[in-house]
């Protein structure tokens, strides 16, 4: 039985979509209901910047991985932890 590693990436993207929705909800609440002060803008900006940095670092490492790999299960399961042989 095999499955493509990219399925994990799609699951991650689904989580990311939900995450973005919730983050935007928090962002909306800060801008709509927060007091019109410098600290409100500063704190909202801080959370946004760190979130963008986290996403950037995540995508940097995700882009370095090879996702079009088929994983063969039940080869003693340890097959999943082996490096793929060339031309396999």
């Amino acid at each position: 039985m095999t499955f493509s590693l990219i399925i994990l990436l799609y699951i991650y993207y689904a989580f990311l979509a939900l995450w973005v929705i919730f983050f935007l909800a928090g962002f909306y609440h800060m801008l709509k209901f927060g007091f019109k002060t410098f600290f409100t803008f500063l704190s909202t900006f801080f959370f946004l910047v760190v979130a963008v940095m986290m996403l950037s670092v995540s995508f940097y490492y995700i882009n370095q991985l090879e996702w079009d790999v088929n994983i063969i299960l039940f080869e003693g399961f340890l097959g999943a932890f082996k490096r793929p042989m060339p031309f396999q």
Binding site: L5, L8, L9, L65, E66, W67, V69, I71, A80, F81, K82, R83, P84
Partner: peptide
Amino acid sequence: VGTVSLPL
């Protein structure tokens, strides 16, 4: 360095 472990 595993093919599945590292992405996971």
